[in-house]
Design a protein around this nucleic acid. Structure first.
Lengths: 257, 257
DNA sequence: ACCTGAACACCGTTCAAGT
DNA sequence: ACCTGAACACCGTTCAAGT
């Protein structure tokens, strides 16, 4: 069957879309190889084997390209969140699963997370294209919605009674802030291990459990083995991802020795 | 009295120190005028009316200069923390005062806070001089110590019994992460107001109170009017700073109209 | 119509030449 | 001994010239 003539334009569009993915792939790889500082439009152009002018047909400016990377990372993060939020577990367990997924994402993609941080710094955000900004907002809204839904489930199932004046959204915002802040501080280079915090992930787990117990979110940790939930997440749900992390660590060790 | 000859070197040292302050002052002012992106060594040199070579005698590189700014901001923040921690209040109130001081600092110095975030991004941190890094670590240790001490006071006074396995340091780290994360998300441009969080500061206050109540940190909010503490902080302790904020807002409004 | 890469402006950094 | 600013390498961005 000969495709209709209309598809000629569509084919070109597909080619362009494919090249955009190629640019983003190369940029992501370069980010890992030469770091944020070393990433230049020249290098990207060289890596994709197109001229700089062509790159600029896809992205308005360097910030826009980085925003494209940020968008893909955000999508990956959202996918992990969705998996966590969709598990067949109690609302409180699912919230823990989301926190787990967040910390996992940051360990899997530390450079992308750092990039996301830089990109969100408002001054940079303004320079990105309207298209990218809009797509970003869509994902943010989806994430916020997925997270809030878990708290709402907790409330509607009767497991959680929100304290006077605190809304679902405010609670989620503060929980998010804790995870985000902990991750940011974690990659900031402040030697928290020297200050009595040997494991950030461990501190967060304990903190979360105490916080949710304090809110009297059932089942309370006295009534339920949340350590088993952690093990379930590690060994079953996110086993493949954790294995990848270990492989990476081993490869790095082999390289340095 | 003629000063001893030794002081000739000392006078020069003072001149150099004064010029370093001048450079930092100009850089801070430029940061406000042209933003992070627009801040260049050329502009700084022009503003201080010295050549670029002279700037480089004070700072190894651009990152080092920004680290100098970061150091001064950190000192300002530490001063605010110290004031809050030294108030004649109960440990729990003092912890609230510190959180208040943190959010106040970020509102007073949004650009410096953004700069601090960028500067801590590890890749940049490595390029700063050993001197600046060392001074930074000293302040960080002081901050961490001041914060932890308030929790320790709560424990030793019998107001707080830490739950099984959670240390002072871990609790402080997570509280810090929440404040830091909330501030970062606040300046990130994500429209949280549209997502049901009209006031980040308000959400944090409610969250903190619920968290500390959940930990059973006495006096619990049923037994004590913490809204009065907030008013005391606003109207007495940090009144001058809040007034400055209002004046700034009015000046900006007058400018735009 | 699409792609190229030379050209431009700007920026961080250095260092030979001045005083 | 101290300071200068021309010079260099690199980078983001543009656009006239190619195919």
């Amino acid at each position: 069957m000969i495709p209709p003539l209309m598809n000629t334009a569509s084919r070109k569009q597909r080619e362009i879309a494919a090249r955009e993915e190629l640019i983003l792939d190369c940029a992501a790889r370069l980010l890992g190889e030469v770091g944020y500082q070393g990433l230049s439009m020249d290098r990207v152009a060289e890596a994709v084997e197109y001229s700089k002018g062509t790159i600029y047909q896809h992205f308005d400016c360097k910030e826009d390209l980085l925003a494209g990377l940020c968008l893909r990372s955000s999508q990956d993060l959202y996918d992990l969140f969705s998996r966590a939020a969709g598990l067949d577990l109690s609302p409180r367990e699912r919230l823990i699963a989301i926190a787990f997924a967040y910390q996992l994402f940051i360990r899997l993609h530390p450079l992308e997370f750092a990039n996301m941080q830089t990109l969100k710094s408002a001054t940079v955000r303004e320079k990105t294209s309207a298209e990218n900004r809009c797509a970003m907002q869509t994902i943010e809204a989806q994430v916020m919605n997925t997270l809030t839904q878990v708290v709402r489930d907790g409330v509607s199932s009767g497991d959680l009674t929100l304290p006077q004046g605190l809304t679902c959204e405010e609670l989620i915002f503060c929980l998010w802030a804790t995870q985000y802040g902990a991750a940011s501080l974690g990659i900031s280079g402040i030697p928290f291990a020297d200050y009595g915090v040997p494991s950030i992930a461990g501190a967060l787990q304990k903190f979360n459990n105490n916080l949710l117990d304090g809110l009297n979110w059932h089942p309370v940790s006295k009534e339920f083995d949340y350590a088993a939930t952690q093990r379930y997440l590690e060994q079953q749900v996110f086993n493949a991802e954790l294995r990848m992390l270990q492989d990476d660590a081993e490869t790095r060790q082999r390289k340095s020795s």
